[in-house]
């Protein structure tokens, strides 16, 4: 049930272009625990910019 909730939230966030921050950090630190990562806020802003940036196709129709 909890897993389902979490998945629903992840779906809703991805629908508006916001990706999973924890997965991002985990990925960045996979080989180097001290690798520089964006903060949660920076990550959110990066996702926002990317969604309305170049080459992000959504169907207006």
């Amino acid at each position: 049930m909890l897993k389902l909730m979490r998945q629903a939230v992840a779906t809703a966030r991805l629908m508006v272009g916001v990706k999973d921050y924890d997965a991002y950090v985990a990925r960045r630190r996979r080989f180097n625990p001290d690798a520089p990562v964006m903060t949660r806020d920076e990550f959110f802003r990066a996702c926002q910019e990317a969604r309305f940036g170049k080459g992000n196709g959504r169907c207006p129709c």
Partner: peptide
């Protein structure tokens, strides 16, 4: 890279894709 290229759960990505193709058309 956790940012542009992210392996994503099938159902989550389905929702994302559906939201992206569904418009007023």
């Amino acid at each position: 890279d956790g940012l542009d290229y992210v392996p994503t759960n099938k159902s989550v990505l389905f929702g994302h894709h559906f939201a992206a193709i569904a418009g007023a058309g």
